[in-house]
Design a binder for these strands. Sequence first.
DNA 1: GTCTATACGCCGATAGAC
DNA 2: GTCTATCGGCGTATAGAC
Lengths: 227, 227
Amino acid sequence: MASAGDSSVKQNNKQRILEATIQLMNEQGGAVGTSQVADHLGISPGNLYYHFRNREEILRELFERLVQELDEVLRVEAGEPIPVARLVACYTGGTRVLWRYRFFFASAVDFIGRDPWLAQRYLDFSRQSQHYMRLIIQSAMKESPGPVKATARQTAHLAEIMWVLWVSWPRYSELAQPGRKLGEADIGHGLEQIAFVLAPYLGEIYYKQVLQRVHRFVKGLEREAQT
Amino acid sequence: MASAGDSSVKQNNKQRILEATIQLMNEQGGAVGTSQVADHLGISPGNLYYHFRNREEILRELFERLVQELDEVLRVEAGEPIPVARLVACYTGGTRVLWRYRFFFASAVDFIGRDPWLAQRYLDFSRQSQHYMRLIIQSAMKESPGPVKATARQTAHLAEIMWVLWVSWPRYSELAQPGRKLGEADIGHGLEQIAFVLAPYLGEIYYKQVLQRVHRFVKGLEREAQT
DNA sequence: GTCTATACGCCGATAGAC
DNA sequence: GTCTATCGGCGTATAGAC
């Protein structure tokens, strides 16, 4: 325990730098610099540059985290049956991740414009996520066909639309509520809106169930926030 | 004509600065600076600062243009009947404007975070636009009720969803097609996707008509591009 | 691992000549 | 209206002591 404890303490600043970057960029936008991060943590610029070669490397590492965390939540196999509970778990879990890294989507154009490597990785990420979403939507519609039937092509459209909404909603919420601190209510509203796109393709009962579980998730967030 | 000609020539650089800013920010992102704009035009920094007090003022002026141009296209009266042609005109015309000023939405968080005045104006703008969209959607659905019926509340949801998609799509297209030059095909695809959200609430014939006209609009863009 | 000190460059902005 | 010259500030990144 002594050696494990030691090494984790030693590497502590690296994690703190990553966390601080997330926090500051979520609050102030993607233009936050290395000096601001260092200042905020009360460490020296030199210290920060001991842990990371440059600013780009911080962003890349944060992006890899985002990718992995979302993949863990969204990963489904083709043909795998997806009950309501699972559908909503993907959905709310994904929202958690996208909310946590919302700064990234807000500044994606800037980040990607300066780092071709990131551009390619982001593209793969976007495609993979939409692939999962198609599978999930397909399964949900099979389980409960709604008043409107969807072809495979339309399923692809739905997945793309929902993906764009999903990653855009945090930023939109921030702009729609300037100054105010954002929280559970906004997340919940976004979740409902995105689910609404799917509504005509799901049965009414199924859709109600989804909304109910989403609502329960939002309540859970509130409880967490009070802790 | 001489005096009018003179003054317009004198003020030419001001317009050129605004146009260059739009172009550069669309190409390189919202972080483009005053010096880059001046360089690109082959004029001096001092010249630029003769026409604008500071960088902020350029952005404000561009924003006001955006607001006005979109308002001209989208303005409808409550209760005004809206035939398909008009619906599609709002829609394609709006897309033109949003595409032209796409840099603004891509960097809205940054811009707004540094300029409270802009934050408030953007909020008004967003609300007003969604208001128009509600009226338009309502009218369209009245004219041709689809397989799913929408309540007033749902109409508001639809308007918000479509607004978010509308302003987010240009940026999404850019990220989805890195490097490639974007054009009519991408605009057309976005238009179809956003219309798709509305599909269940419109009659099939009406929806087909919309798609047809959208398609015609895209063809028109291609013809323009060749000129 | 962490610090201090420092170099370099870019951008926003102003002063003053033409 | 336009230019040249210049200042100050901030952000990235490195060198070298502790």
